[in-house]
């Protein structure tokens, strides 16, 4: 007797219910394990965000209105904030790519041991408080800071450069803080590129430079895009560094939200700004995925 004809025979139905209940039990276990995390995210992230967002739909008198949004798009001040936020984020991302890509390439070609040692120089700042690093930059960049003093004493410049309390300072500080977010995914991707691929390209006739652009660079793109998305989105909502190094001259979106609440106590307007920021971030993620087509680039 065999059970091949179908699931009709008694042998083929052996232990069916036991196995099925085992399946259910397994699923319940996984559900049980993920429940705490789901609850925490729900209570600590989703509900507050929903509640805060809902504030934006009420005016000062507590009536339902779109007043808060209308003001954002009419006010010169708010629009400028959006433009500045966008410009700074783009600038920071571009500089991070220009600095980070060669750095990762260099690290990825090292022996494991040397690369691990040098990675520490990327990671230690990463683990240091943003506040501490921002004040450190203030010390370095201010009018009579180390950089200006030493450049004057070396005779490179006569007058101290305006490095802090402005856009330049904000961007320098932000690049430093954002760089690890670019370096970590990019480095991991570059490390995983099979060196035989580049060899194959060169062996088949590409110059080393040609092999880099035709083979290595495309292979590193997923990591690069991941880093770009991280840096750009984080920059959009960044607060501490532009607030301290910008010296009041740089107003990014997060700072505008803060001042709207602390100075004007206008929760509705602040909430509307927050909602727009959130939407911008989601839009950017969606756009980048569309443009770069990460899922299509590697069909693994």
């Amino acid at each position: 007797m065999s059970a091949v004809e179908g699931y009709e025979s008694a042998e083929a139905l052996q232990n069916v219910s036991t196995l099925k209940s085992e399946n259910h039990r397994e699923r319940r276990t996984f559900l049980g394990l993920s429940m705490p995390a789901v609850l925490v995210v729900l209570v600590v992230v989703f509900l507050p965000v929903l509640w805060l967002s809902s504030l934006s739909f009420f005016n000062a008198a507590g009536e339902l209105s779109s007043e808060n949004y209308a003001r954002i798009f009419k006010s010169e001040l708010y629009l400028r904030t959006f433009v500045v936020t966008f410009q700074i984020s783009v600038a920071v991302t571009v500089i991070c790519v220009l600095v980070g890509y060669p750095l990762c390439y260099w690290l990825a070609r090292m022996s494991d041991r040397n690369a691990a040692i040098l990675m520490v120089f990327v990671l230690v700042p990463f683990w240091t408080s943003v506040l501490v690093r921002t004040y450190a930059w203030l010390v370095l960049l201010q009018r009579n800071g180390i950089i200006n003093e030493s450049m004057i004493s070396m005779g490179i410049i006569d007058e101290p450069l305006q490095l802090a309390h402005n856009l330049t300072g904000s961007i320098i500080g932000m690049v430093h803080i954002m760089l690890p977010f670019l370096v970590l995914p990019l480095y991991a991707t570059m490390r995983s590129v099979d060196t035989d691929l580049v060899r194959a390209a060169v062996g088949l006739g590409s110059s080393p430079r040609g092999a880099f652009w035709r083979v290595f660079f495309p292979m590193s793109l997923p990591g690069l895009f991941a880093g770009i998305v991280l840096v750009f989105i984080l920059s959009l909502g960044f607060f501490v560094t532009p607030a301290l190094l910008g010296g009041g001259r740089v107003q990014m979106l997060a700072q505008r939200i803060e001042s709207t609440i602390t100075i004007y106590s206008n929760w509705g307007a602040a909430s509307a700004l927050g909602v727009v920021l959130l939407l911008m971030a989601l839009l950017m993620i969606w756009l980048m995925n569309r443009v770069f087509g990460l899922d299509k680039l590697f069909m693994r």
């Binding site: 060899r199 194959a200 390209a201 060169v202 088949l204 080393p208 040609g210 092999a211 495309p218 590697f298």
Partner: peptide, 20 residues
């Protein structure tokens, strides 16, 4: 002579095909 000027055909153990 650098490798790209030797004009060789090469086959690797890992195939080394370009996945993209």
């Amino acid at each position: 002579t650098p490798p790209h000027k030797r004009g060789l055909g090469m086959v690797f153990q890992s195939y080394a095909l370009f996945p993209f």
